[in-house]
């Protein structure tokens, strides 16, 4: 019984991390119609920026995480403005650009930090044990911060004029423009917000797992899986899918182990997609 509960907690904390990671991915797709292949790259930049801030600039960990988020957000903003913006209405070109961007990012990280995993660990050790339930303080803190940021993103998207504008852009760019909204003003901001979230996730999560310049592929793969499961472009769908993936992953790893665990995840995802081909909250087609 305790094992079941502890595994559920692991699943929840995985889920909340995945949710923060995939929110940015689905945001970019929903608003710009762009699939950001560099998403995993920004996650790694977040991790390495926090690492550099702690080890080379001597910053305390929370400040390093905030710095990492700002750096990745700014980088995303600039990349959108300089590289992606003029090709946004095209679907293939931004894909090639972000793929190229990802190769540049991962190679640059290898050149600067070396191919070995960086020695970057969470500053708080120890774990909470209560009545047989077990969670490390690091995971608990990450869980709380991620949940807070997800709530903040929700408020930003659904309770502010900025969010109203972004959602209008995501729903129908043509009508939004007809009503006087300027795409050029919102696209770089949306992209920066999304990469900032990826960077924040990287800065928070890599010290609890591992920080290496080869993480990007699996991070991108996971974001893809979650966003497709949740329904492309849907924020709520991405969050729900993240929890499903987190819980399934935790239970299957604990009770099935290794490769069977990974297999179980894909089986669950496949079954859901057979029943709902557009994902959990996906809609048929997408307004142009």
């Amino acid at each position: 019984m305790d094992g079941l509960v502890t595994t559920a907690i692991i699943g929840l904390s995985l889920g909340v991390e995945y949710a923060l990671l995939s929110l940015g991915f689905t945001l970019i797709f929903g608003i710009l119609g762009v699939i950001n292949f560099a998403h995993g790259g920004f996650y790694m930049i977040g991790g390495y920026a926090a690492y550099a801030a702690v080890h080379f600039a001597g910053m305390p960990f929370p400040a390093a995480v905030a710095t990492a988020m700002l750096v990745t957000a700014l980088l995303g903003y600039v990349c959108e403005l300089l590289l992606i913006d003029r090709y946004v209405s095209d679907h293939l070109t931004p894909m090639m650009i972000t793929l190229g961007l990802y190769l540049i990012i991962s190679t640059a990280l290898i050149v600067v930090f070396g191919p070995e995993p960086a020695d970057f660990s969470f500053p708080i050790r120890g774990s909470l044990r209560s009545g047989g339930i077990y969670i490390t303080y690091a995971n608990l803190i990450v869980l709380l911060v991620c949940a807070t940021v997800i709530a903040a993103v929700y408020l930003l998207m659904y309770r502010t004029d900025f969010g109203l504008a972004l959602r209008a852009m995501a729903d129908n760019r043509e009508v939004a423009t007809a009503l006087g909204m300027r795409p050029a003003q919102y696209f770089p901001l949306a992209f920066g917000l999304a990469t900032g979230l990826a960077g924040l996730t990287g800065a928070l999560v890599t010290p609890t797992l591992t920080l290496s310049p080869f993480l990007g592929d699996s991070i991108l793969g996971m974001s893809f899986l979650i966003v497709i499961l949740g329904g492309l472009g849907s924020l709520g769908g991405a969050v729900i899918a993240s929890f499903i993936v987190g819980i399934v992953e935790a239970y299957s790893r604990v009770y099935l182990g290794g490769s069977k665990g990974a297999l179980a995840l894909f089986v669950v995802v496949l079954i859901i997609l057979v029943v709902r081909p557009n994902g959990l909250m996906g809609r048929i087609g997408r307004p142009a």
Binding site: A168, D171, N172, E174, V175, A176, A178, L179, R283, P287
Partner: peptide, 13 residues
């Protein structure tokens, strides 16, 4: 301000 020939609204809203 223009309208469109097809129905164009924010569909999900």
């Amino acid at each position: 301000v223009r309208s469109f020939q097809q129905t164009i609204t924010f569909r999900t809203a």
